[in-house]
Amino acid sequence: MDISAYWRTRKQRLSLTGEICPHCGAKLFPPRDICPHCGKPARTPYHFSGRGTVYSFSIVYNPPEGFEPFVPYVVALVKLEEGSLITAQLTDVEPECVYIGMPVEMVTRKMREEDEDGLVIYNYKFRPVLQPTSL
């Protein structure tokens, strides 16, 4: 990945920062500056809660280069509670335990490493909601 591309997208990758449309109120992820719902400019940053549910998922056994350490892993469509549907890797879960409708929360994790002397790419992933044992 280009350093510049990683740098430009750092806020959305690290903290799930998208945009909110000041005209129609739609919350957008990824940020795209023009609201796809009303077609007007939308550049106000919006920090998503990170909570959502698994909308659909697939288990990856033959990964693209750089993702070998995580095999087998789950790539899911996650429906955020604000409405956006995004693609993300699930973590801290065995593939056989994933189900449609599973409540998940965002965590920031290593997505991949660019060789031994390259950048470490961090990105949002989702995991099953941490269960409190003591509340």
Binding site: L14, P69, F70, T91, D92, V107, T108, R109, K110, M111, V120, Y122, K125
Partner: peptide
């Protein structure tokens, strides 16, 4: 730590 965790990701949480 899991394969996608390090001091940075753990510090973030």
């Amino acid at each position: 730590p899991g394969p996608d965790e390090d001091t940075i990701t753990m510090s973030i949480e």
